[in-house]
Design a protein around this nucleic acid. Structure first.
Lengths: 343, 343
DNA sequence: TTTCAACACTACCACGTTTTCGTAAACCAA
DNA sequence: TTGGTTTACGAAAACGTGGTAGTGTTGAAA
């Protein structure tokens, strides 16, 4: 068990000073060729690699970026991480991931833990509880300390920073419009209890599409679901009354559950019931019938978020005191992926 | 934009020495109460938090653990990360994640990047390419430097370290046995090209179950699939001949594809074709019909792996030179989750 | 012979912490 | 007063690195 070798050890071994070793390895001209080569050979032999921690301390840069998301076992978030990691890696950054479990306290804790020097900047999506509370002091604090933050998907207007989102309202509008175009009149919206920003926006889009097409907006057709496992009853009752002939679900889990319930009742998809879901994940693709979805390219969001963050990190160096923080909000394109659940 | 405050700044501001500040904050008795309280109040007011990087450098401990996995957009791996994160968090560790994309080079690169001080230990699952090449020098090197490594799922016998696996062979055996118990005789195995260790083991279990039940092992019933998207043809041909009445698939993607293909051909599941898949993910749960699977609790694997690693990290401190590395291999229990795709 | 540059290298500082050791001042007993 | 202990604090080293500013030697030009 040989510990990693340091400059100091090399210096001692070769009987030169630490600086000589350091300079030799960086090919400085101040060092004579003989010494330089000797040091380099020695370093190579012992596989010398500078210690990241020491470098971080010295440069005040860790070359790693912190990601805070509500959960990781979720296709959308995994793809975002994937997207972030790609760009980060290209630029020599590593990613540190913390999960908030949709809890405010964990989000705060994790941010504080990472903010004390561990990372150079944050990419995050708000936890449900944080959105509900509307308490963002932990984020402002981090930003005030000069640490750049990029928010994605679940963002808030209360914080000024770079953001990456999709146009939830427009996407929902498009989805509902396509149902209407196919002759559907009674379109239900299946959503979550809506303190989460995106749920609200999607509902807005749904409503607008209806109204623009002269279809009255009916509160009874908005089904709010707290827990997926208990929603079957509600849905089957409504289906029994043939209260609607199409469904727009805010996520694919709701969609697939509805389809399963409807199928059990003998309804044909899409003839008797058309279904569109938000968020394109694996379930939609492999469900029977496969589900038409609104794509929400997590990878692209991740790419973009990482790019924005890294750009800001590298820029900071130069400007320094230039306080014109022109934050931008990037909107990622969505489109409808037509599959078997619609005609 | 106020930068984070340091001990030095506090010291200067209060006109005491750095050591006094440090000691006051750690409630050392050597410091008089008056000074101590003054310092603490000041520190609290300016929200002083020790710098993690400096602490890491001093303590030679980063309190973070590195995870290297082939990909993150994969339910199994997400759950493992989840499991690791839970335990890590409880013990005050953060996790740094790097993706190998199943590439040997990226795996090596990422490990080298993290090994230079960024983390205290690794939890990893081998990339396909690494398993194929059989080149593990990057891992031995890290271990030789005294950095503990825990491998999970895709492991190798060529490396001595702690491991967390499931008994792939036994699990496959159990699955196939259950098909046989239900009267199936012509059982196909759908697997990947098998340089990945687990594929091999599952095949072994499949074979053993057949032989133990006096069913001849038929090479033609082993279907090796390179790419999911192109496998439909192969499968439909075989199904057409009614070459088999049951399928054991090494992952749920294969399983769901088979079910879709069979359904299109008018076959009834499970009457005409029973299906069991390895790896319990969301697809199996929400597919129609839902798929019977071998559970492979990623979360438990993650929990266990993290526990093993952290235990070793905390222990190291004491023993130090005690070289009796008694590595263990933990086997996580699996069980069959019966769903609609079998009778 | 002096001076000046080039060369080859070393000293020192800073990054932020903790910790060991040291020491001045105050107090007490003899 | 002397010697010893306690109280309250400070100096400095260490972790590993990298940059700036020296320092001393040599050789050559003035």
């Amino acid at each position: 068990m040989k510990r990693k070798i340091t400059l100091k050890q090399i210096a001692k071994e070769l009987d030169v000073s630490i600086s000589t070793v350091s300079k030799s390895l960086r090919n400085s001209l101040e060092i004579g060729e003989e010494t330089r080569l000797k040091v380099q050979a020695f370093a190579k032999f012992y596989n010398y690699k500078p210690n990241n921690i020491a470098l971080s301390l010295k440069n005040r840069k860790t070359k790693s970026i912190g990601i805070i998301i509500p959960e990781i076992v979720h296709h959308f978030f995994s793809t975002v991480i994937n997207g972030i990691e790609q760009v980060a890696n290209e630029h020599g950054y590593s990613v540190v991931i913390c999960l908030s479990d949709d809890s405010f306290d964990k989000e705060v804790l994790n941010m504080e833990m990472l903010a004390n020097g561990s990372i150079d900047g944050f990419i995050m999506s708000l936890s449900k509880e944080t959105q509900f509370k509307g308490d963002f002091h932990h984020i402002t604090e981090v930003i005030n300390q000069g640490m750049p933050v990029v928010m994605f998907d679940r963002v808030t207007n209360d914080i000024l920073c770079d953001k990456v989102i999709i146009d939830d309202k427009a996407a929902a509008y498009e989805a509902v419009q396509s149902l209407i175009d196919n002759g559907r009149k009674k379109i239900a919206l299946v959503t979550t209890v809506d303190y989460v920003s995106v749920g609200k926006l999607r509902t807005d889009g749904y409503e607008k599409a209806l109204l623009d097409n002269g279809i009255p907006f009916n509160e009874d057709l908005i089904i709010k679901i707290e827990d997926v496992d208990t929603c079957e009853i509600t849905i089957s009752e409504l289906l029994h009354d043939r209260a609607f002939d199409a469904v727009f679900a805010v996520n694919e889990l709701f969609a697939v559950t509805i389809i399963k319930t409807a199928s059990k009742m003998g309804l044909k998809i899409p003839e008797d019931l058309a279904v569109i879901a938000f968020t394109d994940g694996i379930i939609s693709k492999y469900s029977t019938p496969s589900i038409t979805t609104v794509s929400q390219s997590g990878e692209k969001m991740g790419n973009k978020a990482a790019k924005m963050l890294i750009e800001r990190l590298e820029a900071e160096h130069d400007e320094d005191e230039d306080e014109n923080e022109n934050y931008t909000t990037e909107v990622i394109e969505t489109h409808l992926i037509k599959r078997e659940s619609t005609d």
